[in-house]
């Protein structure tokens, strides 16, 4: 068992019209961690994901899963698609059946499992994603957030080792964002899979992610832990991104209000700790 569940080595991908979508991408995904792929629109996040799942074949370079280079044979692809589950941004692009139950059963059935096992998996993933009571509802009567959960359940039923989500929070209300992210975290703790999320919602990154890659024009522009990446504010802004609100506030306090903080803070709890220490220090001096 390799320490890295997924790796890409010098991965390049060009579309048939010649656009170079990915250019020499090297990323490593640690087992059991949540990795964020940050990037503005058109940075190549979705293309990267389609390469990870073997839907697209790299033009050059390779994708490595659990220490082994992906084989693009029928057998190799089936194994890969079981291991790496892809949740698309728009659930209407993923849910093909008008029945929630049937849609969730599609993936595991393609793994040639017996009907009993598939049924058990479908029920289990419907319960895990909190939509068991929706199983009799037609897809077109669900809200966007509910459809998103069905899309996640459909992939979860394949019991992947890596769950890849394209913009999991896009189009959700603030409560929905929190719910989906907590759901993912909880399931990750239960089932121990690794998560890769593409997002431009920088506020969720310090809260839920362990490692960050920033893509720009098909290249990895920055990488590191969330705090390492968000310490490079100017660079992020050049890449059509911004700091998390809290990190931005801390930056302003530091620049304009003589605030001194030791550690970098980009979440509310980190910032609170820093501000308290600062207050203590002021009182002592």
């Amino acid at each position: 068992m390799s320490e890295y569940i997924m790796q890409t080595k010098n991965l390049c991908y060009s579309y048939s019209d010649g656009t170079k979508a990915l250019d020499d991408i090297n990323i490593t995904i640690k087992r059991g961690q949540t990795t964020a792929i940050l990037g503005g629109n058109g940075a190549g996040k979705t293309t990267l994901f389609l390469n990870l799942n073997g839907v697209l074949n790299p033009s050059a370079g390779k994708v490595v899963y659990d220490g082994k280079t992906i084989e693009y044979s029928k057998k190799g692809l089936t194994a890969l698609r079981q291991a790496v589950g892809l949740v698309f941004q728009d659930p209407d692009h993923q849910l093909f059946s008008a029945s929630v139950y049937q849609d969730v059963s599609f993936g595991p059935l393609n793994l040639r499992l017996s009907d009993e096992i598939v049924r058990a998996r479908v029920e289990n993933s419907l319960k895990k994603t909190g939509i068991y009571d929706l199983k009799d509802k037609p897809t077109h009567c669900l809200s966007f957030g509910q459809k998103k959960r069905v899309a996640i359940a459909g992939v979860l039923a394949m019991e992947p080792e890596v769950l890849v989500l394209d913009e999991p929070t896009a189009g959700l209300d603030p409560k929905g964002v929190g719910e989906i992210m907590r759901l993912l975290k909880g399931m990750q703790q239960d089932l121990g899979f690794s998560v890769i999320i593409a997002t431009h919602d920088v506020d969720i990154v310090p809260l839920y992610c362990d490692y960050v890659y920033v893509l720009d024009e098909g290249k990895v522009a920055l990488e590191g832990s969330p705090n390492e990446v968000f310490a490079k504010a100017e660079m992020l802004r050049n890449l059509h991104l911004r700091l998390p609100r809290i990190a931005h506030l801390m930056e302003i306090l530091r620049k304009n209000d003589d605030f001194e903080n030791g550690d970098f803070a980009s979440t509310i709890s980190q910032a609170r700790k820093e501000i308290k220490t600062w207050r203590e220090n002021l009182r002592l001096s």
Binding site: L50, N53, V55, T78, R81, Q82, G85, L86, F88, D90, H93, Q94, F96, S97, S99, Y101, Q102, D103, S105, F106, G107, L109, N110, L111, D115, V118, R119, V122, K135, D136, G154, V155, M158
Partner: peptide, 21 residues
């Protein structure tokens, strides 16, 4: 086109196999 891509990522092999309740 997008549906086809997403079906493929879930192992579509020409038949839409589903289980019914």
């Amino acid at each position: 086109d997008k549906i086809y891509t997403s079906l493929e990522s879930r192992g579509y092999d020409g038949e839409l196999n589903v289980l019914e309740q």
